[in-house]
Structure formats: C-alpha cells, structure tokens
Design a protein around this nucleic acid. Structure first.
Length: 430
RNA sequence: GCGGAGAUGGCGGAAUCUGGUAAACGCACUCGCCUCGAGAGCGAGAGCCCGCAAGGGCGCGUGGGUUCAAAUCCCACUCUCCGCGCCA
C-alpha cells in the first residue's frame, strides 16, 4: 500500500508506475481511489463542522442548566444535529471504505532498475555461479528416486492429506533439519536474531503484509477462527511490529525466521506434481529486515549475498535473475530470484526469492520509526529473502549430488550436523 | 472451560458510584530561553484525521446502543491479571 498522503501529492508518479506495469484495470482503480478520497475529505469537513456546532450548543446547554435557565431552545437545535451527522457519516464511510479498498489493491512503486517485461521469460539473468552438470539421461525424477530409496513417502502422504503432502524419512528427514540449522547458524553469526513465529495469524495482521488475492489463492483458513496458516514466516515477522514506532538507533532489525510454510497453490504442475518442488507444506529459513529507507538498497544486496553464500557453501550451482515488471507482483519494489540448477530438467529453477518491499508493507502494517533527536516519524522499509527453503534445497542436493549407485553425497557444511555422516545410502522402503 | 478483577499518553496514575466534554499529580522525552558548560529553573510541545493556514474534528481495549452530551450508563467481543479445572 502506498501512503495516501504521498499519493495525493504525487499522482503523476503513481500513474507512471502503473503504465510500466501496463495494467489498465489498475489505472481505473487509481482514478476511483482519487475520486473516493476527495469525496471522503469533502464529507468529513462537513461532518466536522456539524460536530463543532453540536459541541458548542452542548456547552451552552450545560451552562444554561447550571444557571437554572430554560434550555429548551438550544436543546431543540441540538437534537436535529445527530441525525444529519449520521446521514453524512454513512456516505462518508462508504467513500472511505472504497478508497481504502482501492488503495489496498494499488501495487508498490517499482524501482527504476526493474526491467520491463511481460512474464518470467523476460527476467534478466544477472549472475551465474558454479558448473551446471550435463545430462546423463539416467536421472529419475527426484520424487520417484526418493520413494524407491526409502527416504520419502509421497504415496502415503497423498493418501492421508492429498496431493502435495509427503513424509520425509530417515536420514533425509535429518538432512532437512541440518539444512535449516546450517542456515540459522550462518545468519545468527551475521547478527540476525533467530525467530520462531506463530504459525497462524489473524486476518488483520495478514492484510498488513500481503496482497489481498493471496487470501483466496494461497492461504489456508482455519475454520471457525479468525486465523490463517502462514505461507511464510515473513508474514508473521512483518506483522510482529504492526502499529509500532521503532527507535532509529534500533534499526536495522535483522531477523532469521524459521517456520513451516503452508500454501494452497492450486493447480497441477506436470512433472513437479510428485516430489518436493511444489508442495503444500515445507520448512523455510527466512531473512527479514526492518530498516531506514536510505539503507534498504544496501541491505537488499546483503540479503542476496547471504543467500548466495549459503548455496555456494553447499556447492549448488545457481543463477540470479532480476525479476521484470510483469512478474514482480504487487508487494516488492525490486526482486531477485536465485534459481538452482536442476540436472534432471537441465534447467535453473526458483529456490530463493529476495525482495526489497520499500515502505509497502510498513504502510499497510503501520510500522514507523522515530528519527533520532526529534519527534519526526517515517515509515520503515522492509526486506525479505529466503535463506533456505528446505524442500527445494533438498531437491537440488538430491539431483546434483546423487551418484550412479544412488548414494547422496552430503555437502561438507552439513556433515557436522549429521554426526559426521558423508553420504546417505538408499534404504528399504517402509 | 469456570469464577473474580481489570484495560485511560512513553510509564505510574486521576476523573467512573452521581453523564457536562480527559490525562490532574508524578516520572521520562523533544525544542527553546537562561548558562563558559552541565544541572537547576522557566516556557512550549508531545496520538490520529481534515486543512496552505487560521482552525476544527476524533481519541479513554474493540464494535455497537442510549443521550444535546459517554472514560462514566447498557449490550457483545478481545486481551491481561488472580484462583480453579484440563493439558504436551
């Protein structure tokens, strides 16, 4: 969400931004927003004037009564006001609601460096690291391999919970824990505070962090409660500081979230349907930062560097893409994806998403900071980046590091978390 | 889940019974004056909304109701504390 005060003064810039997104619908929403905002302000003025008059008369009535004088004339005038106020308030509330609704749909201002494009095929490759392995033509889909190797059970996961659910078994389940712990230890050393957030949050908290369409498409609703399962710890962590004014010298606040992520993501995905790539539940270590506006570009680069460092330490080949205007979504002003090399598909696939959300979430969640030595307040900037989404990292490890005998080589930095184990051998399926 | 008490600025707290337009009093904070400097003292300020401003409106956990007028009365909800129950 954009700050409405700012929008009133910078309508041209907002319109330009929408042109870059090439979205006619948004342009109409924007003029509707301006219209309702103006109407609301006009009515508010009228209502305030009426209230002023009512307050004056109320005072008169008070003093008349205290003096023991007849107040019936003043009372008669006063009685007429609340009804009129109520009428106008109804109209004003309607306009305010509409203006709020439209502003909730307005996307963030894009950073000027975001490339113009239609969809993910127009994203710009900015870096490639590591040597992508050539296809041997013998690799099985990782889901099939893990099922046969007794390291995961997709069949029974589907049986009890439906497609997109799975059991991790034995050493693969331990490797999943190792990955998460590896990422957390790395971030803790970088000054991040580790956070285990609530896994369910209320609608109001949720509206502060994400686009409204996510409620239908992505999030699971808990029946009978005002609660949604989090789709990432980013959501819980951002709303953690909702309606707060932070002190400038506490910034930047760097947090490393650890949580399961629950996503509906309806629809079939071909070869990815069975396996760990696209699932309804996975664990993720997330980087999240609240900072001063002037620091967010620098911190954005840091978060990406952290994500890259983790993949480099694991030895997983990847490339970094800068997401284009058509693929970036409503929340981020600028976004990089880190795509890991997946040998079986001979393709880079999204493993990490790293966004500078500027003040978009801060406005929605009302998170400000007080400038040092003054009473001035401004919205913070928020940034988030995956550190490790364990499900996708596991797939990358399995595909990149399994030898012809079906043994998965454990990346060096994870071995310490696996009691010194260097490889995972296939087991008998349960 | 049951019973009791409560929710007011950054904090402690007053006004609630008896409706009359909130933050008295104290602490902390910001700016200014005064000081060589610090402190003390004095003055102003300190939430949100509309307005270029002057000014006005709103705001006492949330939502509704009664009233010319609600922190105060009524209803529902949320949360906190105490006790009991249940529980990994």
């Amino acid at each position: 969400m954009l700050d409405i005060h700012w929008v009133r003064e910078h309508q041209g810039e907002v319109a330009e931004n929408l042109v870059r997104r090439r979205d006619e619908k948004l342009k109409r929403s924007f003029s509707a927003l301006i219209h309702h905002d103006e109407e609301w302000r006009r009515l508010k003025r009228e209502i305030d004037d009426l209230r002023k008059r009512r307050n004056e008369i109320s005072k008169e009535i008070d003093s008349l009564k205290r003096a023991g004088t007849d107040a019936s004339q003043a009372l008669a005038e006063a009685k007429a006001i609340p009804g009129r106020v109520q009428e106008l308030e109804k109209a004003a509330a309607e306009h305010q609601q509409q203006s709020h609704r439209y502003s909730m749909h307005l996307p963030n201002l894009l950073d000027p460096t975001v490339p113009f494009g239609r969809d993910s095929t127009d994203n710009e490759v900015v870096k490639t690291w590591g040597k992508p392995s050539k296809s041997t033509g013998t690799l099985k889909p990782h889901g099939e391999f893990l099922q046969e190797a007794g390291l995961a059970d997709f069949t029974r996961g589907t049986k009890i919970s439906g497609a997109g659910f799975y059991f991790l078994l034995g050493e693969l389940a331990l490797l999943e824990q190792a990955l998460a712990r590896f990422a957390l230890d790395f971030l803790a050393k970088k000054g991040f505070t580790v956070v285990q957030p609530p896994y369910m949050i209320s609608r109001a908290a949720y509206e502060g962090v994400t686009d409204l369409v996510d409620f239908e498409r992505v999030m699971y609703k808990v029946e009978g409660h005002d609660l949604f399962l989090i789709a990432t710890s980013e959501h819980a962590i951002c709303s953690m500081f909702r309606d707060e004014i932070l002190e400038e010298d506490k910034l930047p606040i760097k947090l490393a979230g650890l949580s399961p992520c629950f996503r509906k993501e309806i629809g079939a995905h071909g070869v990815d349907t069975r396996g760990l790539f696209r699932v309804h539940q996975f664990n993720k270590v997330e980087q999240f930062v609240f900072c001063r506006p002037e620091d967010s570009p620098k911190i954005h680069a840091e978060l990406l560097a952290n994500a890259e460092a983790l993949f480099q330490k694991l030895g997983l080949p990847y490339r970094v893409v800068l997401i284009c205007t058509g693929d970036i979504g409503a929340v981020a002003a600028k976004k990089y994806d880190l795509e890991a090399w997946m040998p079986r598909e001979q393709a880079y696939k999204e493993a990490i998403s790293c966004s500078n959300c500027t003040s978009y979430q801060a406005v929605r969640s009302n998170i400000k900071f007080r400038k040092k030595g003054s009473l001035d307040k401004a919205y913070v900037h928020t940034l988030n980046s995956t550190a490790i989404a364990t499900s996708r990292a596991l797939r990358a490890i399995v595909e990149n590091f399994t030898d012809e005998k079906g043994r998965i080589q454990i990346p060096k930095p994870l071995q310490a978390y696996m009691g010194g184990l260097t490889e995972i051998k296939p087991a008998k399926p349960l």
